[in-house]
Design a binder for these strands. Sequence first.
DNA 1: CCAACATCTGAACATACGCTCATGTATTGG
DNA 2: CCAATACATGAGCGTATGTTCAGATGTTGG
Lengths: 125, 125
Amino acid sequence: MTARAKSAKKAAPDLCTEHHAPASHPAAKIPPLSLVESQRMGEFFAVLADPTRLRLVSLLAADEFCVCDLASSLSMTESAISHQLRALRAARLVSYRKEGRQVFYRLHDHHVLELYQTVREHLEE
Amino acid sequence: MTARAKSAKKAAPDLCTEHHAPASHPAAKIPPLSLVESQRMGEFFAVLADPTRLRLVSLLAADEFCVCDLASSLSMTESAISHQLRALRAARLVSYRKEGRQVFYRLHDHHVLELYQTVREHLEE
DNA sequence: CCAACATCTGAACATACGCTCATGTATTGG
DNA sequence: CCAATACATGAGCGTATGTTCAGATGTTGG
């Protein structure tokens, strides 16, 4: 299973023993992600891995909106939208501003807008 | 529930009727994502929303590796790694090259490397 | 205060996802 | 040919996730 142990007694020597091919060709030598780093990064991408949340981001990329209008724009319940905005808030992708009964949401900063636009263009092929 | 219908007969007029606040302040007017567009974009982010796949990308960001070495580097079974490489392949995030019994994987293009590095730096705060 | 509104929250259910396990295919050396 | 190696694949299981539903909190106008 592991294919890590050295060959038994005959046939097919273990040629896969950490000797990768050309040895070096890419950019700088960046250390691989640790387990916790990969988990943090995974959680970040996971927030953007949902159609509803992405549509919310796409709306907020144009202007600021209250929960009610966001729900209406996507033809979804305000409860569902509120749940998703909570996730976007926890990931610091959006900020909000209370005004009376309403809560207006907007993208947290320009990094979010840029990431969204970059990936959108990347998929427009 | 929908809060879309006009007020009944008295009290609390429907102030949330698509009149968002300042009206305009951000960048250009980009149309919101359609349902299918958001699904495609969501699937793309979903591939990057897993710790194992991110660690694979982080390894392939430095060099090209065969499945066996990738599994060994992450202390996981070759089966698990093969399953994840399949997902990365389907998303066109990695390419591969067969050499005898081994299959060497690498990042598909520089866009992948740039996206990975950008987000990594963004989380290093 | 009270009713309507705007939003938030917790529980529950259906679905999606990642790993393990067993098996299948392909390549190599003897 | 045959066995070991390298990788791929399908089924199955436990867990995570998004939505609905019911209800709670907070705000406003009469």
